[in-house]
Amino acid sequence: MKKHNVYVCRCEDVTLDELYYWIHRGFTTFEGLKRQLRIGMGPCQGQICGEVIRRELANFLKKHPADVKTHTIRPLIMGVPLEAIAKAGDQDES
């Protein structure tokens, strides 16, 4: 398969080609790549792309995947509307 046809991040439409473009510019950590490509910033929050990119980085760096750090886990685990958060906060106070 051609690298520009392989999507490593489905939330932000990032292809394997684009991933390697930035890896070759010196961005060889997940967090560094995240800030240029938005991988891990979409609705999946790295749960899908995290492992795929970890393997690509391991290949490139000639390391075992377990030795490549993946994304920082941040809240929220799933998307919640702002107004639902605001209302839930009001209920707590009553």
């Binding site: 979409g42 609705p43 998307g79």
Partner: peptide, 9 residues
């Protein structure tokens, strides 16, 4: 804006 979902903080 309240209708939008928060994905990350």
């Amino acid at each position: 804006i309240g209708k939008l979902r928060v994905v990350r903080q």
